[in-house]
Design a protein around this nucleic acid. Sequence first.
DNA 1: GTATAAACGAGACGGTACGTCAGGTCTTTCT
DNA 2: AGAAAGACCTGACGTACCGTCTCGTTTATAC
Lengths: 214, 214, 214, 214
Amino acid sequence: MQKSASSARSKKNRKPAQDKPAAGRPRNAKATQAVLKSAIELGMELGFDALTVEGVAARAGVGKATIYRRWPNVWSIIADAVLADIDEIAPLQQGATARESLHASMLLAARYFRGRRRPILRALIGRAQMDETLLKALIEQWLLARRAVSREMVRRGIASGELRANLDADIVLDALYGPLYHRLLLPYSGDQIALSDSYIDTLVATVFGGLERK
Amino acid sequence: MQKSASSARSKKNRKPAQDKPAAGRPRNAKATQAVLKSAIELGMELGFDALTVEGVAARAGVGKATIYRRWPNVWSIIADAVLADIDEIAPLQQGATARESLHASMLLAARYFRGRRRPILRALIGRAQMDETLLKALIEQWLLARRAVSREMVRRGIASGELRANLDADIVLDALYGPLYHRLLLPYSGDQIALSDSYIDTLVATVFGGLERK
Amino acid sequence: MQKSASSARSKKNRKPAQDKPAAGRPRNAKATQAVLKSAIELGMELGFDALTVEGVAARAGVGKATIYRRWPNVWSIIADAVLADIDEIAPLQQGATARESLHASMLLAARYFRGRRRPILRALIGRAQMDETLLKALIEQWLLARRAVSREMVRRGIASGELRANLDADIVLDALYGPLYHRLLLPYSGDQIALSDSYIDTLVATVFGGLERK
Amino acid sequence: MQKSASSARSKKNRKPAQDKPAAGRPRNAKATQAVLKSAIELGMELGFDALTVEGVAARAGVGKATIYRRWPNVWSIIADAVLADIDEIAPLQQGATARESLHASMLLAARYFRGRRRPILRALIGRAQMDETLLKALIEQWLLARRAVSREMVRRGIASGELRANLDADIVLDALYGPLYHRLLLPYSGDQIALSDSYIDTLVATVFGGLERK
DNA sequence: GTATAAACGAGACGGTACGTCAGGTCTTTCT
DNA sequence: AGAAAGACCTGACGTACCGTCTCGTTTATAC
């Protein structure tokens, strides 16, 4: 992680300006990592609603001020921890056709959505509903970063004649990814079947093929 | 509202048993209504993350115990308040065809999603990501209640030959409604255009028509 | 108990006026007794600082209003319960001389002070330090009632020539009984020896014998 | 006050160990003093039964936690406040004879008992009847501290031949001080005459002079 | 090599809200 | 009309965290 993942963090940070190494004792990278790790662990263990700055500080063996020096609240810690390895988690795939690219990318996303980190992502999106700063960070650093690439897939599919010409790329992506978020956040049919590989297969086939009888 | 909307509430409630009027002073319906109203108002004014039992009690002119006697926490108040008038908000529409029924229903849902109550619904779904009881209530009383009817629309469309025979009703509905929840919770393109009537129109046309060139 | 022991109670009580049997359902004497008993029991079991109207009502199987109809607060229940059998507990004794009378009476008082009801009496006098009404009841119904008789003992001792002529009866009684209350309320030397019969014997001998060498 | 007056307090206190300055921000002595002062003031104004931690905190301009960090309950604040200046209030006097020493000491004690702080002392002894910890603190830090010195006065009186040889010092002191506590806690004859200087004079004369005719 | 500067762990600070309990009152139904 | 039941509003309890603020100490650059 080169730059801060959460924009919320930036205000607290000193400006490194022109590589000037800044006077005084430098921040302890070990402490930073310990906080990120502890926050995720505590959230997973106790539930993210039970997450407190005090608890994270204690688990990380760090003073509260050390946390507040870096982040304005617990949720920006979580945001940082998650969005740090943003590219490694569910990376977008490029295939021969738009359908193949999107299908492969969606399979990876679904695996992430039903995997170990599922509670973190749910909590983060959930919390973002009451936290504009967090919402902004999620949209910009997670969603729009992926959209930029995905939209290109759709556009290439249109250009190549694979897809219908009058499609709105965002609506296409909404139709494909919307169901994933829907099932992530409102898992109405029991978690086991939801977001399985075959669910994605059927979903892609359905959306690409349309609903009406030909 | 005949019965309690939130299942979270049920534990607290005395059982009315067999129409036996229960000993002691009956609960004050006025107080109940004042709390529901105050909770929604305070949430809208201060933000739902700033909602406190104490604040709601004060605004409603009610003791805290009166609230705790009915609900286990603030969120179940909100859940009750919202899910009470569940049928009035965005009621499902029946048209001549499945497409017309779903289209009309989605337009109403989208209007609700972008309307005055939008912050309430967002907060409720958001909070549900860290509150299993609330999630269960939302799924059962909101989502599945609607799904039962919507699935029937799809099935009738299949039976009448309007829709393709091998469709999974839930996947169809995910493809249609998923985008709405997606845009509600992760409004990536500015709120103004999102969930507009024309967005729904295009979405319905896209999903019903499929993506691939015929 | 014919008459109300605690004056605190009198305000709440209906006036029987002229033996008129009062309209409506008569008060349940069983309930009254159950409350008195329960209050004492609960005080002894949990400590008198943990005594609550609610607890007493529950233990007595009685509604709170039934208690408030009779007493203004928990302490007046205790006062009533204790002062009811005031004459039976540590009754004053009449002997041949003032010394014998007082000695015998003090022995009984000391036994009461170190007996089973010791915590009740301590709590009552303790509470009276912050409750003027209770203090007044204790002084009038307990202390002054005894003083009237005790003073007469001293006076007879003076009249008979047994005691010095210039004594103030109250000061004599203070010198005799003061130590008992002192040890009851500030038991500084461990409870075992304090207020024993031999303590009383020595105390009486000391005070009566005078301190200075003849 | 070098050491904590109330033993109740000791558990909460961090051990200063061997002059080790203890990690973290040190406790604010100003806050401590403000609390002690406010507690006494509020008790005097509203009555000590109306004393609450919340009220004291508010008056002292202090958070509740700041109080609970130092004392376990309101009464230990009062105990600390009173027992702090224990030696200044009613100090024991040394005279030429035992009688003079005790007489002078009792006059000071009586003045204290009927003075401005009278309600505090009454409340404290009263509360101690239902609070073992407080009782222990009062006995050890107030009563026994004084007794140690007073007993020596009596012993010297016996050694010098001023007093009879077979006297029990504690019983002598009970006979002298018992009446003071009796009148403090059960002021049966109106507060005006009680504990006046002339009451003490007569009391001392009576007890010292003996009661029976020579 | 000695300032100066900032970060560090610790923990106290003034607050807010929690969820509970009890106070004393009021409102039911039943006796 | 009294009684048991239990809801009502009020207000305090003791706890947990908030975000800020000293402490004394450590670890850097700058003089």
